[in-house]
Each structure stands twice: as structure tokens, then as C-alpha cells.
């Protein structure tokens, strides 16, 4: 049983990277961006004085944070076309491809986590700055987009990036709906060629290196922002 064949990795590397890693990284980047935008909106809603908005945002965030990602992936894979139909008022469910479905799922799921981060970030901006903004005659929208949110983003950047690394790892769960991300590609090769050990060890190594190096960068960034403050 124990015959390592690491040639298989070299041979399939183009497939693993082109089919798998590109999917994983694109999904991570887009979902992180979308999740951050939506998460910031949710955080603003939660902190707003309009009771309905705050209630909705709180409910949404708590709901998402209570569910396992695996369950949410299934939910959305089957449900999103009907939601699309209801929103766009089309006569048939909207066809959503595998990538779009995964992107919607991760964006909506991660938004809950990003919103908690952004809420802490917004609350970290001293109240006096808001008052100063209003005193200058800025509207709520202007105060938020020019004064509060940029600072919240900067204060929270290391946490946001750390959450993005978690997201990067979480994207591997699309395996459960047979979408070919990096792990999916590796596991297809593993099953087809009977090279389980090599492929799974290699996948683990790649995920480790990317996450580890990224977290080192985050730590350095954290040290730098800490000095500026």
C-alpha cells in the first residue's frame, strides 16, 4: 500500500491549479468583498435607531451564525433559484450556476461574521467624531462613508483579513455539492488514480502554506498599524 508516487502531483498540477485553485481563490476574493460590503450594511442597520432595521439585521446575523455552513450550502444550492424567481418575478426559477450559487452562499453567510467585526469597528470610533461630522453639516450618509466606516475598516483590517483566511479554508466545503474547487479537484484525481495519500497530503500542504503565510502577513500588518496608533 505504501508506495508514494509524487509524480502524480506534478502531472496533475496544471489541472489542480487551473480548475481548482482558480475557483477557490476567485470565490474567496469575491465572497470576502461581497461579505464585507453586506456585512458593513448589516452592522450599520444593527446600530441604526430605526427599530425594524436593527431587528432584521440582528435576526439575520444570529440566524446565520447559528447554522453550520454545510447546511447553509445545501439550503442555498436548492433554494436560490426560487428566491431569484420571487425577486425577479420570472415565470420559472432563475438558473444559477454552481459558481454563482457558491458565491451567493458564501457572501450571505460570511456577511453575518463580517457584520460582527464591522460593528465592533464602528463602535471603536470615538463618538466625538460623529458629532464633529454632524457639526460640520455632513449628513448621516456622509459621516458614515467619509468618517466612520473608513476608520472602522482600518482598525479592523487584521481581523477582517483573518476572517478571510477562515473563509478561504471554508470554501473547501463546496466539496459536499461536488463543485470542483481545489480540494474537489484533488479528491477527483485521488479517487480516479487511487492516489489518496499523495493528493490529500498535498492538498493539506497547499492550504497550510497559503493560510500560514497569509496569517504571517496579517501579523506583520497588525504590528505596523499598532505602531501608527
Amino acid at each position: 500500500m505504501l508506495q508514494f508516487d509524487f509524480d502524480i502531483i506534478l502531472k496533475t498540477l496544471p489541472y489542480l491549479l487551473r480548475e481548482g485553485m482558480v475557483f477557490t481563490l476567485t470565490l474567496t476574493a469575491l465572497a470576502a468583498f461581497g461579505g464585507l460590503v453586506l456585512g458593513t450594511l448589516l452592522a450599520l442597520m444593527r446600530l441604526s435607531t430605526i427599530p425594524g432595521l436593527a431587528l432584521f439585521a440582528t435576526g439575520y446575523v444570529n440566524l446565520m451564525r447559528s447554522l453550520p455552513l454545510v447546511l447553509v450550502i445545501f439550503w442555498f444550492y436548492f433554494l436560490v433559484p426560487y428566491i431569484g424567481q420571487a425577486i425577479l418575478r420570472t415565470e420559472r426559477p432563475v438558473e444559477v450556476g454552481a459558481f454563482a450559487s457558491a458565491l451567493i452562499t458564501f457572501t450571505l453567510f460570511e456577511a453575518a461574521y463580517f457584520s460582527e467585526i464591522m460593528r465592533a469597528g464602528i463602535q471603536s470610533v470615538p463618538k466625538g467624531q460623529l458629532s464633529a461630522g454632524y457639526a460640520l453639516g455632513l449628513t448621516y450618509r456622509q459621516v458614515m462613508s467619509y468618517v466612520v466606516v473608513p476608520q472602522a475598516l482600518r482598525n479592523m483590517l487584521p481581523v477582517i483579513l483573518t476572517q478571510t483566511i477562515v473563509l478561504f479554508q471554508d470554501t473547501s466545503l463546496v466539496y459536499v455539492i461536488s463543485i470542483t474547487d481545489f480540494l474537489g479537484a484533488a479528491s477527483k484525481v485521488a479517487q480516479r488514480d487511487g492516489r489518496l495519500i499523495e493528493m490529500y497530503l498535498f492538498a493539506a500542504l497547499v492550504y497550510f502554506l497559503i493560510s500560514f503565510l497569509a496569517s504571517l502577513l496579517v501579523k506583520r500588518l497588525q504590528a505596523r498599524t499598532a505602531i501608527i496608533r
Binding site: 433559484p81 426560487y82 450556476g97 455539492i177 461536488s178 463543485i179
Partner: peptide, 18 residues
């Protein structure tokens, strides 16, 4: 377009137009 399905996902994916 081609989409991989499993025994578990194929029926809901036909029904929901994917």
C-alpha cells in the same frame, strides 16, 4: 453547459431549474 450532480442533488437541481 455542464454541471456535475450527485445522486443526492440531482432531483432538487432539476426541480429548481439549475
Amino acid at each position: 453547459r455542464l454541471l456535475p450532480v450527485t445522486s443526492s442533488t440531482r432531483i432538487p437541481l432539476i426541480a429548481n431549474g439549475t
